[in-house]
Design a protein around this nucleic acid. Sequence first.
DNA 1: TTCTTGTCACCTAGGTGTTAATAT
DNA 2: ATATTAACACCTAGGTGACAAGAA
Lengths: 229, 229
Amino acid sequence: SVQLEMKALWDEFNQLGTEMIVTKAGRRMFPTFQVKIFGMDPMADYMLLMDFVPVDDKRYRQGAFPSCRYAFHSSSWLVAGKADPATPGRVHYHPDSPAKGAQWMKQIVSFDKLKLTNNLLDDNGHIILNSMHRYQPRFHVVYVDPRKDSEKYAEENFKTFVFEETRFTAVTAYQNHRITQLKIASNPFAKGFRDCDPEDWPRNHRPGALPLMSAFARSRNPVSSPAHQ
Amino acid sequence: SVQLEMKALWDEFNQLGTEMIVTKAGRRMFPTFQVKIFGMDPMADYMLLMDFVPVDDKRYRQGAFPSCRYAFHSSSWLVAGKADPATPGRVHYHPDSPAKGAQWMKQIVSFDKLKLTNNLLDDNGHIILNSMHRYQPRFHVVYVDPRKDSEKYAEENFKTFVFEETRFTAVTAYQNHRITQLKIASNPFAKGFRDCDPEDWPRNHRPGALPLMSAFARSRNPVSSPAHQ
DNA sequence: TTCTTGTCACCTAGGTGTTAATAT
DNA sequence: ATATTAACACCTAGGTGACAAGAA
């Protein structure tokens, strides 16, 4: 079984409608997709990988009221048409793959090397996504079958885990200002854009002060949702 | 077979008497121990690791003429007594171990995560060395034998490679100022201590201008010495 | 108008030798 | 005296969103 790390933070983003930046050079995800894994055979080899599937075949367009684009309380995602042609369905292998079950289970597995790009011609092995489309990250565990005819058992040698709270819209620039603010508040690399006392958060945060704070404070002892397998 | 990378730079340091800093927290080596590997079975698994053996049982002390310690042309290493009691003989596994031969051979293998410490109680897995002692780095390739009784063949399942030009003295502070200068000149992280035009070297270096420069310029197309196996 | 691109200041994270203080 | 330690300024390397300019 698999437990999503930082579930509370994912939930907070998901509630607002998570957005992930895609760039030509490749951009990391934030939050980073991280999991705790249980129940592997400690001595067996496993490959861990991720891919991204479109949530629907729609293309999104922002703004019910274009003239009020700073009225973020009224912002929403509108369907703008059918999806663009499917992108190359790339896969990201965790760089430690393959490794023994014991190795994977003894610490949090972090996909922080995974990068998202909108460059269809990318040759850095990044995940290629269409901007303004919604995606569902998927996590796959593949058992490396030592048997000679292992291809025969391919179907039973992997498991897929889906956490719906990690869904997001790929964008080239943030559309929802509240997403921007939550990213700035929670991503250490965006600390330069914070205006509050940097020492005050999240370490010395008073619980319940602001909605987005309290959930993140809880996330320091994450209780993850079961994966929708 | 194994080829030492940056051999010309190693030679330059070795000629002056290479020194490596050891600290409580752990310090990387510079130059970094890097090799190109040939002749592995591409499909077989291998572990790559390093250890460090004392070159002799002597303890060193610097300075023939203590009153002239700035006269570096006369500096030399003197024997100061018997070696201190042996340190825990730790080993550093390359973090990508185990991996297939094809993986190891397709690019330079770099031991840049390896750190040296003088802390006998170190619990970070760093290599523990005695300051003011000389060491010979060794590189080991271990074939992961798939046979059930693989222990029987342990003796024939590994090869050790020794490059004498990588010998060094462990120190807590540099003793030979020419070593300091060569480190500053060649280690990118020490660029802040350079006084010459940073753009001029090593990129646009005129060959033969200074001894220490020419060797490094050659090192860009390294011709490595055969390992003393 | 909407979306994308490239550059930038400002961060995190961590590798350098220097230096002054301390230990042996 | 000599050896070690810890704090420091100055780097490399690279992850942020802001912003202005460009593209569709």
